[in-house]
């Protein structure tokens, strides 16, 4: 059964076609990698699913729900969480508070309740404990009270991952989680993603350039070029697809 269905999505920025009738679907529980050269439209698709970009055409269904009818802030509540290619942490908050932001959609309390301090305090404790547990699981317990600014890049990436997990998502979207990491860190990240998927019962949509990791952990690979899909299947068949080889290596002429 598919969790997310991308159906004929098109996005234009002025005259530039960023996505051109893109269609594919992600099965519940799989790790699906979205690969392709720079500018293929992978991050654009992430932003469409997050409802940050408005597609000019196409449909987007998630667990039977029409995503395009919803505002951006409602997406997290459906169980869709993501990380960002260039990081989008909140430097003014501590690491644990950044992770707690991730739980915003599944916690309660508006301005009035929070101002009066009740019953927010109980929820607050629960959300903080959850966040600390996630940080601990990712080896970040030591920096929990550190400011989110001024930590190493690899650490920041893991904090973003923790924040996405704090939403207790059903669909986790990771935008180039391995970029900027050392070789050892990439291997570790691959294991982490698999472990997270198994532990939290997730579906993962992954944008990644690191082929070793993509081929190692994903069950489903979608290849894009110039906003279109050029291949879709399991890692080994996609890797042997002549169109994919051409897109990555050029025609040689």
């Amino acid at each position: 059964m598919s969790l997310l269905e991308v159906d004929g999505i098109g996005v234009r920025f002025g005259g530039v076609v960023a996505l051109d009738g893109l269609s594919f679907s992600i099965a519940d529980g799989e790790i699906c990698a979205l690969i392709g050269p720079n500018g293929a439209g992978k991050t654009t698709l992430f932003n469409v699913i997050s409802r940050l970009y408005e597609p000019s055409e196409g449909d987007l269904r998630y667990a039977g729900e029409d995503l395009l009818r919803l505002p951006a802030h409602a997406i997290a509540g459906l169980g869709i969480a993501r990380t960002f290619q260039n990081l989008a942490l909140v430097p003014g908050l501590s690491v644990v508070e950044n992770v707690m932001i991730g739980a915003h959609a599944r916690s309660e309390g508006g301005f009035l309740a929070c101002t009066l301090g009740f019953p927010a305090r109980r929820t607050e404790r629960r959300v903080r404990d959850d966040a600390l547990e996630l940080l601990d699981g990712l080896g970040l317990a030591a920096v929990a009270d550190h400011s989110a600014a001024g930590l190493p890049y690899g650490t920041l990436k893991r904090i973003e991952l923790a924040r996405a997990l704090a939403a207790r998502p059903r669909l986790l979207m990771l935008d180039e989680p391995a970029s900027g990491l050392t070789h050892g860190e990439v291997t570790e990240l691959g294991d982490t993603i698999r472990r997270i998927r198994d532990d939290h019962d997730l579906t993962v949509l992954l944008v990644e350039h690191h082929m070793g990791m993509v081929m190692g952990i994903s069950e489903h690979v979608v290849v894009m070029e110039f906003g279109r899909k050029i291949a879709d299947g399991d890692p080994s068949s996609v890797a042997q697809d002549p169109k994919v080889i051409q897109a990555y290596l050029g025609t040689g002429s």
Partner: peptide, 16 residues
């Protein structure tokens, strides 16, 4: 604070 520092991140996390 999230809105102040990074509005997109806030919105994606579900902040109205």
């Amino acid at each position: 604070v999230a809105i102040r520092d990074n509005e997109t991140a806030a919105e994606v996390a579900g902040v109205r």
